[in-house]
Write a protein that binds this DNA or RNA. Structure first.
Lengths: 101, 101
DNA sequence: GACTTTTATCGTATATTTACGATCAACGAT
DNA sequence: ATCGTTGATCGTAAATATACGATAAAAGTC
């Protein structure tokens, strides 16, 4: 139970998507939705400052990346992070048991 | 982006494991570790009251259940919840893309 | 019934999160 | 150079999370 690094990593990634708006943003970006920040703001019932804050959280956790394109910023998801997240989640259950299903 | 119920559900489950101690508890219980509350408290560097609070969070989110057994409480994990969690996480990525991998 | 063990809950302090308006910085266009 | 647009950051208020000691509640033991 000694707080494996996997627990820290899983907790860190989980925390970042532990808000409906952030889960929605990740889903949207993974679906190939337009990645301009403004496009995201328009689709979420939250103020621009708040959305920007959520994007920051997701970026810092590695769920998304944003590259500057002139006056705007293009955000896109990092699918590897989702893969890693799923891997860590499945890793909560011992491999023995998992392979049986 | 209209905040699907899947986003709410994923966020809710993610939030519950978004703390290293809680991730560790779920991992331990899924591994078949002894489920007595005291056994968990002994293995985590946190006060009994704090562990109890974490157990409550996990129970309310459906990650674990605890049944009273005399003076003690036996906690165990709900594997269905992990399955659902993984399903929701994978669901962040469109099925089209996922089947390709 | 008094006592011990086990776990939950209360009260509380501190830290973090969430949300927003206001403002700043970067950039393109005029 | 000024202006409008875009997005980040600041300041701040309110809510929630985290942690702990103290205490209560439940159950078995003497």
């Amino acid at each position: 139970m000694d707080l494996k690094s996997e627990d820290e990593e899983l907790a860190r990634l989980a925390k970042a998507v532990a808000h409906p708006a952030r889960a929605a943003i990740v889903r949207f970006l993974l679906s190939g939705g337009e990645c301009v920040c403004g496009g995201i703001v328009d689709r979420i019932p939250l103020a621009q400052a708040t959305v920007s804050q959520h994007l920051k959280v997701l970026k810092e956790a590695g769920w998304i990346k944003g590259e500057v394109d002139g006056p705007r910023v293009c955000y896109c998801a990092r699918p590897e992070t989702l893969q890693r997240f799923v891997e860590l989640a499945r890793g909560l259950e011992p491999t023995m048991k998992r392979s049986r299903s």
